[in-house]
Write a protein that binds this DNA or RNA. Structure first.
Length: 768
DNA sequence: ATGGAGACCTTTTTT
DNA sequence: AGGTCTCCAT
């Protein structure tokens, strides 16, 4: 069998037609679980067997994970020597590489630093402060969102300042200075030789718009373009793809409008809906056969998504078995929910001989993971939480990387601010403020002032000046080593000579941080020893033979690296916990979707418009379709949010699942049975346990989304037989009390955890 | 300049 | 509840 036949033999008919249609515009509408990634990877592999130069292929994804997986699968199909030259990565990653090459055209210097969201927010905060504006009016995240939306729509700071509608909108919102902040923010990025995430897309557009020779160069280079998750593209991304594809029209976009869940950050679902208008000669293929899930799951998902108005018609079906019905579990509280889920996983593992890795617990917000983790720990079930605070966002790692970044780009203001006094060397906030003011007055960069305080008449005393000198000399000495010392060596040198290592070593409570820094160094070692990913000169396509794993290359690759922990965990048998957003594209045998409550899922932030609610519903659709064998949906009647106990109404989404797919009666709560007669016909009050009925009634009548449970009870109000509520343990009954007064104790039999002896002055019992 | 106590905000999702 | 930010005392 030829390589070509081998590739095609592994595809169904519609997948096959989508794969072999290499030339011309192609849109693949791929239902959940229909083999979308398969089509993309096999298509690239097929192209390579057709003798297409891999260097001419561009494949764009949204996450590093997706790009990594795709790469790996193509390597398996055609061998990595051939596939290596394919330009494959995230929009931001690929365009970053191009921008680094073309920096001069944009008026930037080499080694442009990419600011992450934290850097961007910090910069905005300092600008707001410098302008003497109220930081509460001009909240950094909100201002950034405004600027980000503008950039994503290719509106420059100048355009913004001239756009009467935008200015009016800001004025009405009481934030007339956003335009000015935007301008200053961009200037500061420029003088820091830095770009934020949106700039990578914005400036890529500038390159293609203002420099015909560059447009030509990349049009010529990328004769075949593939875009994954096309429904998630924003305007800036859409336009780049359109321009690059304009010469050859060999563009293949793959997506599913039903899984568009990023409108909140500017994704425009119209991009996929309008593909046919953009390319009238395009061919559309629909992948509607689901290979992933059971009939019950597929049909339930179809029924849910039907409630949305905006969608392309498609009928997802499956030949898989009918399977388990969908289980809906109502629980008393968030802790109860967590315990119920943990218990169910435990039982399923036993009964069906399943590994932990077959299970995933999904939730709407990261904050929900805590209770679930606790329950899993209690049951001794190994787990891993995805997407919490990522490794590279930890303080100690950011500190070390700030030194790296500063070594590579002295003008990186955010990094300079971060490390100028870390480890502490007596350069306080006052000095830093003076430096910034001085830099602005002299129309120069912060680094220049630090390097030559006398030249700019910086008003600080002699010892401070000496300290600044020390910082400048230190950083410059690191820079001098960049080309001669590999990333690992230089990293070690920096960590040792700055005193970061000593500081972490000295403080025994910082052991985790020390280990994280060591783990960073490990990954640097691996990086220097690894064969480089791309051996091609971006300009000419020539193979680069003098590749050197320097620190700047390491920093450039950081966003695509996965850290030690993640790598280890990937291989281990663990239950996976993650938000639904990060579960997109993944699949698991047993999926638990938790927190199906109004105001949580759908989120209270998304109840404003139909479009927002429909995005939440698509998110629910994504959640449902992650499951291969069995789907369990859970909700809780009370939940802690912001440290307050709140009552929750069950999610409207639960009612959108037709009854015939639902498992009707089940053990609903640890130690208690609730009979669900018919989920789609009963009102929520049917599920409320007796002891909460009164509250619930008020709740429904007042139509308030949430409500606090009663006040904390005094010790003298606690007596045997009383029903009480406890923060951690939930509802219970007082079984016994002793010794009146301040040290009064009580034994309480809790519904979920059994008997606990509590010292009442600390227990904060509530009488419900 | 530093560090601790208290006020304050958070919880949408990611490159 | 927990982390971040602000202000005040040292």
């Amino acid at each position: 069998m030829t390589a070509e036949q081998q590739i095609l033999s592994q595809l169904n008919e519609s997948q096959c037609t989508a794969v072999v249609q290499v030339d011309g515009p192609v849109m693949v509408i791929a239902g959940a679980g229909s083999g979308k990634t398969r089509v993309l990877t096999y298509r690239i592999a097929y192209m390579l067997t057709q003798g297409i130069n891999p260097y001419r292929i561009l494949a764009l994804t949204f996450t590093n994970k997706a790009a990594g997986e795709m790469k790996e699968r193509i390597f398996q199909l055609v061998g990595n020597s051939n596939a290596k030259a394919v330009m494959m990565g995230t929009f931001h990653g690929v365009f970053n590489r191009i921008i680094q090459v073309e920096h001069e055209k944009l008026g930037f210097m080499r080694n442009i630093t990419v600011y992450d969201t934290d850097d961007a927010k910090n910069l905005l905060k300092s600008i707001v402060k410098e302008m003497n504006l109220d930081p509460k009016t001009y909240v950094a995240s909100h201002v950034l969102h405004r600027i980000s939306s503008a950039k994503s729509s290719l509106i420059s700071a100048d355009d913004y300042a001239k756009n009467i509608e935008i200015l009016e909108a800001d004025r009405i919102n009481g934030k007339p200075y956003i335009s000015e902040i935007f301008k200053r923010y961009n200037n500061r990025l420029k003088s820091s030789n830095a770009m934020d995430f949106d700039d990578l897309l914005y400036y890529m557009n500038v390159l293609l718009r203002d420099f015909p020779e560059i447009l030509h160069k990349y049009q010529n280079r990328f004769q075949y373009i593939l875009v994954d998750e096309y429904q998630d593209t924003n305007f800036a991304q859409y336009l780049i793809v359109k321009k690059l594809a304009a010469a050859h029209h060999n563009i293949c976009v793959v997506g599913d409008d039903a899984q568009s869940i990023y409108a909140f950050r500017g994704a425009n679902i119209q991009n996929i809906l309008n593909f046919k208008k953009d390319y009238p000669e395009s061919k559309t293929f629909k992948l509607e056969q689901n290979y992933r899930s059971t009939k019950h799951i597929v049909n339930a998902a179809n029924a849910v998504i039907k409630n949305n108005q905006d969608q392309l018609h498609k009928e997802v079906w499956t030949e898989n078995e009918e399977g388990h019905q969908i289980e809906i579990l109502k629980t008393n509280s968030d802790t109860d929910e967590a315990q119920t889920v943990a218990h169910s996983i435990f039982e399923t593992k036993q009964n069906y001989q399943k590994n932990n890795a077959h299970f995933a617990i999904l939730y709407r917000t990261n904050a929900q993971s805590r209770a679930l983790e606790e329950a899993l720990i209690k049951k001794n079930i190994p787990y891993i939480v995805y997407g919490g605070i990522s490794f590279y966002k930890r303080k100690e790692i950011k500190d070390v990387i700030a030194y790296f970044r500063l070594t590579i780009n002295h003008y990186d203001e955010e990094s300079l601010r971060r490390v100028i006094n870390y480890p502490m060397r007596g350069i306080g906030a006052t000095t830093v403020d003076k430096i910034i003011v001085c830099a602005q007055e002299n129309n120069t960069r912060v680094w220049d002032v630090v390097e030559k305080p006398d030249l700019y008449h910086l008003d600080v005393n002699a010892p401070t000046k000496a300290r600044l000198q020390d910082v400048a000399i230190r950083i410059k000495s690191y820079s001098a080593m960049l080309t001669k010392t590999d990333a690992y060596e230089l990293g070690n040198h920096i960590v040792a000579t700055t005193g970061i290592m000593q500081e972490l070593n000295a403080d025994k409570s910082e052991i985790d941080r020390l280990q994280n820094v060591e783990s960073l160094l490990n990954s640097m070692k691996e990086f220097t020893e690894r064969e480089p990913e791309s051996l091609f000169n971006e300009d000419t396509g020539e193979i680069i033979t003098d590749y050197y794993p320097s620190l700047d290359r390491f920093v450039e690759s950081i966003s695509t690296l996965i850290d030690d922990d993640e790598k280890k965990n990937e291989l281990q048998d663990r239950v996976k916990l993650m938000t639904i957003h990060s579960a997109k594209g993944l699949e698991f045998d047993y999926v638990y979707v938790t927190g199906l409550e109004e105001n949580l899922f759908p989120s209270s932030m998304s109840l404003g418009t139909r479009a927002e609610l429909e995005e939440e519903r698509r998110l629910f659709y994504v959640a449902i379709t992650r499951a291969r064998k069995k789907l369990t949906l859970t909700s809780a009647q009370t939940r802690y949010r912001f440290g307050n106990l709140q009552f929750c109404e069950e999610s409207r989404f639960l009612h959108e699942i037709p009854v015939q797919f639902i498992h009707k009666t089940q053990k609903a709560s640890m130690g208690r049975n609730i009979c669900i007669s018919d989920v789609n016909e009963v009102t929520p009050s049917h599920f409320i346990p007796i002891n909460e009925a009164v509250h619930h009634k008020r709740h429904t009548h007042e139509r308030k989304p949430t409500q606090k449970v009663g006040k904390e009870a005094r010790a003298d109000q606690i007596y045997v037989g009383l029903r009480v509520y406890h923060d951690k343990f939930g509802y219970g009954k007082v079984a016994q009390t002793d010794s009146e007064g301040l040290d009064k104790k009580a034994v309480v039999t809790f519904d979920s955890v059994g008997n606990k002896t509590l010292l009442l002055k600390f227990a904060k019992l509530v009488i419900p």
